[in-house]
Design a protein around this nucleic acid. Structure first.
Lengths: 204, 204
DNA sequence: GTCTATAGAGCGATAGAC
DNA sequence: GTCTATCGCTCTATAGAC
């Protein structure tokens, strides 16, 4: 069993993604990755010609996942139902570690600036956010700042819940569905007849 | 003017916080910090006996800021108005770089695990979140997961807006006030008479 | 308070045996 | 497909001069 194996590339990507999420790209060494795979640094170089190439593989997976989500979304009728389903499907990806990759992209670590993939990935993310923001909100790619903030918060909700669910016993499904509801309210705020905030605010 | 100065410690903390935010703690070297201060690495060691001590100083500032916010909040009458003002004051701190420190804490980088300050800081953050979550929501420190998610999202909204406002020309005050409104809605959701989400969701 | 110089460890990456 | 061994570099940290 301790001999050569053929799934090292996939295992390496899973392990690397996890370590990048914990320590950041620059804080993760090839030694750490190799140790978890029970191989040596040199063996890693058989599969990838550089550390940056490992990052590229990880980002490629993320990019593909988001692109598939976009393709699906574009074939659906536009509306709150489709947006909710987009968020639900994104939340599913959360379980397979998409959160870590998304954070790598969104926290724009300088490591990504030198990645040719970075532009493509960011493009997909922007398109996905546009899909979630709905029609009328965006004007040619430059969105209403508040609406774009709400979309990013919706995704952040799924990330946070996904992380927490992973550590919780039982899968934390109530938390995930609560997060999905919150995310939907953020991108499609329910009509409310409550008084304005400023009206409720009396200075100390 | 190129001689000795007395404010190197403060400057180092500001610079270090900024670099930690950009590259993470492990991705930031003392050479980077020293270069921005126009001194050498060795000079840095006159002010701090280790890299970890620089991190400790930065976290100490953060811890103090949050503690002051908690003290103020506890002297106020409990209610949505106080919670809004707590968020507003937190958003102000955002301009002075608290976001970066908060992220260092919240992303629990392993660097923090070996910091004796970490427990204290995390304690303050939990207390602050409890204050924001309001009464009845928490049951002895262990909160309703959905409510705690909403609080974390509210803070995340202020972080995102603060970051964006820093890069925007004009200070982006509309964005900041929009973020404050969103944050308030998250911790004190307006009563709504809209239909349930599941009722709006029709599968594809 | 800042400098030069250096120690010792770990880094990414390569060469070559098996 | 994985190994050992090694290169050149950067890292944190220290010693000691000014």
């Amino acid at each position: 069993m301790a001999g050569r194996r053929t799934d090292t590339r996939e295992r390496a990507q899973r392990v690397a993604l996890q370590l990048f999420a914990e320590h950041g790209y620059e804080g993760t060494s090839l030694r750490m990755i190799a140790e978890r795979l029970d191989i040596t640094k040199a063996a890693l170089y058989y599969h990838y010609k550089s550390k940056a190439e490992i990052l590229a593989a990880v980002l490629g997976n993320f990019s593909t996942s988001v692109a598939e989500l976009i393709d699906w979304g574009r074939q659906q009728p536009e509306g709150p139902g489709t947006r909710r389903e987009l968020l639900r499907r994104y939340a599913e990806l959360t379980a397979s570690g998409i959160t870590a990759a998304a954070r790598l992209v969104q926290e724009n670590e300088p490591s990504l600036q030198e990645q040719s993939l970075a532009a493509e990935v960011r493009g997909h993310v922007v398109t996905f956010f546009d899909l979630l923001a709905g029609p009328g909100v965006l004007t040619g790619g430059v969105s209403d700042p508040a609406a774009s903030l709400r979309v990013r918060l919706a995704i952040a909700a799924l990330h946070m819940a996904g992380d927490e669910a992973k550590h919780a016993q039982g899968g934390g499904e109530e938390l995930l569905s609560a997060a999905l509801d919150i995310a939907c309210d953020l991108i499609d705020p329910p009509v409310n007849s409550a008084p304005e905030h400023t009206a409720r605010f009396t200075a100390p």
